[in-house]
């Protein structure tokens, strides 16, 4: 699993234990959890939001959510890092979508945060990630971009359709086919 590698030196069991203790209101455990995971989640916020102050505000809210909701971790069946990264990504995406809705975005947020492989990153990437990138590579370039834009920038079907200059239904069909292909490749 990618989980252990992603968490750096933090072992899966330790994160599980820290989340369980955080759910019981153990502040020391929460502090340790922050020590082990905040650099990763801050990296995610920075990449998605591109603005440092906003990334700091987002990180603050993410950890308040984690503190208040650690008791929900067990129910959903995610690995600890996936749960934390999902909360962080979704919170950052919420902010990015609000920024776009308010019409104040597009300066720094236009580039796809780089999910495409570069040689250095690929060399040290986990085997799970390498597999994901290989599978994205099997998709047509546009379609791979569209899926990554949805995850990394929170772009909606309407936004993607506009960007790639196709009708929304065509975009939906493209993307849904790409998701089936991705899944086939990943479970091969």
């Amino acid at each position: 699993m990618a989980t252990m590698e992603r968490a750096g030196t933090a072992a899966l069991e330790e994160l599980e234990d820290l989340l369980a203790r955080t759910a019981m209101g153990d502040r020391a455990a929460f502090g340790r959890l922050y020590q082990l995971t905040s650099a990763k989640l801050f990296g995610v916020c920075l990449r998605i939001l591109s603005r440092e102050q906003e990334a700091e505000d987002a990180l603050q809210e993410i950890y308040v959510k984690i503190w208040c909701n650690a008791d929900r971790y067990r129910v959903v069946g995610y690995s600890p890092m996936t749960w934390l990264i999902t909360i962080a990504r979704n919170h950052a995406i919420d902010r990015l979508r609000k920024r776009r809705a308010a019409g104040t975005s597009l300066d720094q947020a236009e580039d796809v945060p780089d999910g495409t492989p570069n040689p250095e990153a690929s060399a040290i990437a986990s085997s799970d990630r390498a597999q994901l990138l290989r599978c994205f590579g099997e998709l047509e370039r546009d379609r791979s971009d569209a899926v990554q834009r949805a995850y990394l920038l929170g772009e909606t079907y309407a936004e993607l359709a506009k960007r790639f200059d196709v009708p929304v239904n065509t975009m939906r069909t493209w993307l849904r086919r790409s998701l089936i292909k991705l899944r086939e490749c990943l479970t091969r």
Binding site: M1, A2, T3, E5, R6, G8, Y34, S38, A39, K40, F42, G43, V44, L46, R47, E56, L59, Q60, Y78, S79, M81, T82, I85, T86, R89, P113, D114, G115, A121, A125, S126, D128, R129, L132, Q148, Y151, L152, L182, L186
Partner: peptide, 21 residues
């Protein structure tokens, strides 16, 4: 969630300033 979460693997870890904590 786990698969797409791997798209964050190459995002560098950045220690947040102490004021956040």
């Amino acid at each position: 969630s786990d698969r797409f979460g791997r798209l964050t693997d190459d995002m560098p870890e950045v220690t947040p300033p102490a004021r956040v904590w």
